[in-house]
Simulated scan of single mutants.
Amino acid sequence: MIEQSQIERWLREDLGHHDVTNDVPGETAGRLVAKESGVIAGIDAAEAVFEYFGVDVIERVDAGQRIEAGDVVLRVEGPAADVLRGERVAVNIAGHASGIATKTRRAVDAARAVSDSVDIAGTRKTTPGLRSVEKRAIVAGGGDTHRLDLSHMVMVKDNHVVEMGMEEAVARFRERASFATKIEVEVERPEDAADAARAGADIVLLDNMAPSEVERAVETLPEDTLVEASGGITIADVPDYAATGVDVISMGCLTHSAPTLDYSFRTGAE
């Protein structure tokens, strides 16, 4: 669900205070056309932008579907001025989200070539103000959102360990967190993984380790401990990490480095 206040922020940024460019009379039809293949996402946000102006959305493709160059993914009808005012924001959001979904699907496919059980997850390395759009795009691509914000899970990172020590940090956060909140502990050496589990971690994050190190760390952990690998992992790296026995591979590049999927918005007759 896209909040109206968010749509208004997007539109204020694009339209400014005196939009003459889109002062076009009459009614028109418009269509959002893919210029390359990929996985669609952000279409709900694009639809919400047009609906904000009272433009009718008469057809749309569901998020998560694969699309090819030339496919029409959204059709609208309404006053020409309003169709054109919504065009750029809708194209930008859909293109950005679809790029994330497409990259996520590539990562998921790379993992599935090796393992049917490992999950591909995002991170909190999202664009300020666009996290909800980007996280939904990851889901559209077949990935897992990971924690949506700091309230969803406690993550004990290196800075916490420096300040308090691993055992004290886990104990402190366990005391303050809800019974339903999981605690994840980040480690950077294979030999520290078992210590994290003994300290009470529900999830052990193996950060910035080579696949061989990850595999060695996994072998030291109890079977009921969830294991995540992260840290600069690219799509090319995914098969090697998927073969290590981890449960989750988290990738910041899904959001911070995904290229925009190219769309064109066209009005008038096809």
Rank of each mutant, 00 (worst) to 15 (best):
I183T: 14
S5Q: 14
A242N: 08
R60S: 12
S264C: 02
F179G: 05
E87C: 03
M166R: 12
F179E: 13
G142I: 05
T102K: 11
V76N: 01
G70K: 05
L205M: 15
T267P: 07
V61L: 08
A69N: 03
I138M: 07
E8F: 04
T126Q: 11
N159S: 14
V246I: 12
C253Q: 12
P25I: 01
E188Y: 06
V246A: 07
H96L: 14
R172Q: 13
D82S: 13
V72S: 03
H152T: 05
T225W: 06
V91H: 01
D56H: 02
T102F: 04
A177C: 14
A90M: 08
T255R: 07
G78A: 04
A81H: 03
V39I: 15
W10D: 01
A48D: 04
G232F: 10
M251H: 02
G38Q: 04
V248E: 10
E3T: 11
F173V: 15
P239W: 08
K125F: 06
E213I: 06
A94G: 07
G165K: 07
L221G: 09
E3N: 13
A81V: 03
E167K: 14
V20N: 12
P222F: 09
M166N: 08
I233A: 12
A94N: 06
A258N: 07
V73M: 02
E167I: 09
E3S: 13
